[in-house]
Structure formats: C-alpha cells, structure tokens
Amino acid sequence: MRKRFEISVEDIEPQMDEVLKTQGIPSDKSPPEKVKSLFQESKDIFLKYSEPVGIISDISVFEFETVYRGEGLNEKETPLDEILNKADNLVLFALTIGERVSEKIRELFKTNDFALGCMLDSVASAGTDKGGDVLEENFFNLLSKKGKVNLQKCILRFSPGYCGWHMSGQKKLFEFLNPEDIGINLTDGFLMIPLKSISGVIVFGDKEIFNFDDNYPFCSECTTHECKDRIRKLFRDLRPEKEKGGR
C-alpha cells in the first residue's frame, strides 16, 4: 500500500500556547495582546498559504532493516533497534506544507517585519509537526478498518536525526518512499526541500514494545526527553469517541 493524503490545513492548525512556548513565552503567563494578535495574524497567513500533503508506504520489517541501517552511521543501540522486530506493521512517511509559507516568511524578513516573520516560522513548524500526527491517525484508521486495532495496540513515529537514527538515514528512506511526487526533494546534505517537511517511520504494535527507557548514551545530550511524553500519551484511549464507554 502506498497512499497519498491531501490534508486539510485546519487539521494541522497549531494551538497558541504550543507556538508561544517555542518563542520562549511561558504558558503559565497570559501573553500580551500584541503577541496574541501577532499569533492570530501569522495563523491566518499559515492557513492561507500552506498546502499540507503527506504520503505513507508499507514496508516490511525485513525491508526496513536495510532502510534503517542507512549509511551505517546510526548509534550502536537505539530505541528503534529494540522495537523493530516486535512491530506488527510499519509505514514510511513524509509530509510537507509546501514552499509558499517559507516564501512568505522570507518576504516578511525582507520587509523588516521580523516579529511576524518569526512567529509565522514557529506556527509553520508546529503545523508541520501536527501534520505528522494526522498521518499517524490516518494510518491508525486504515488499520482499524482492517480490524487490526484493539486496546493494546498503538502507534509511534520516529525520524532520522532523532534518537540515534542518523540524518543520513534519509537517503535510503527517500530511495524507498520516493516522496518527490509530493514535492519533497533531498539535498546531498540530507536536507529536505521544502524546509517545512518531515520524514520517518510510523510503527504499529503492542503498547508495551514502546515502553523504552531514556538512558541510551546519546540521551545525555537530548534537551527534551520528548520520548517520555510520547510514551505517556500512548497509554491514552485511542478508540473513536463513540466507541469509548462514558461514565
């Protein structure tokens, strides 16, 4: 299965607090009016100019091992090394919001509207990341239709450049996925163009397989320990609202 998703921009609209956090504004303080209106204005531009599109493609564990080995530059032991063989299903993914928002950001900086340009950049980055969540959901729904989903199952995505998977892993990933047809190209330095793009693998399997510790040697340099949050979220109820038993 190889599937392209034209994503509605409203589905990846980021929340104000998550964007302001990336601008160094703490969420426990109410932001000044000026900042709120900057956020609103950049969100409007984001909604007007982004063109989110994503792609997912099935890959077997065997095939993925080649992709994951990449150029041989990964860390010795990684969370994915442990998870892979226990996974039920894998898909490679790539997603972009296109070049137009980045053009708009450059334009704003050129005309000295730095605050709006910078806020738009943060909105666009958060939106791109949210696009990854939408692809995860779409994949989950496809599996659900096939009757593969139950309360013990969940999904998590991983990207080259994170958690011991070297950036150069994108080379093999691109060779297998060919996201060029959704407009993403890879440079020799493993940079995706458009800039606001993400890539990686989405793993589906038993919740327990994702319960790894954040104590790999490279974790000492990790500033976010984001895995902890992501693992915590996995243990939430993923069934559609109507199927959840209310109290």
């Binding site: 601008q23 504004i25 000026k34 900042v35 900057l38 000295n112 730095f114 605050a115 910078c118």
Partner: peptide, 15 residues
C-alpha cells in the same frame, strides 16, 4: 520582555 517584543523594536530601529 519576550522575543516578539525584541523583534518589533528591531523593526523600529531599522525604520
């Protein structure tokens, strides 16, 4: 103050 404030001031400086 926060980053957006600094950047608004920078715009004023350029003006």
């Amino acid at each position: 103050i926060f980053l957006p404030d600094v950047l608004m001031s920078a715009r004023a400086m350029h003006a």
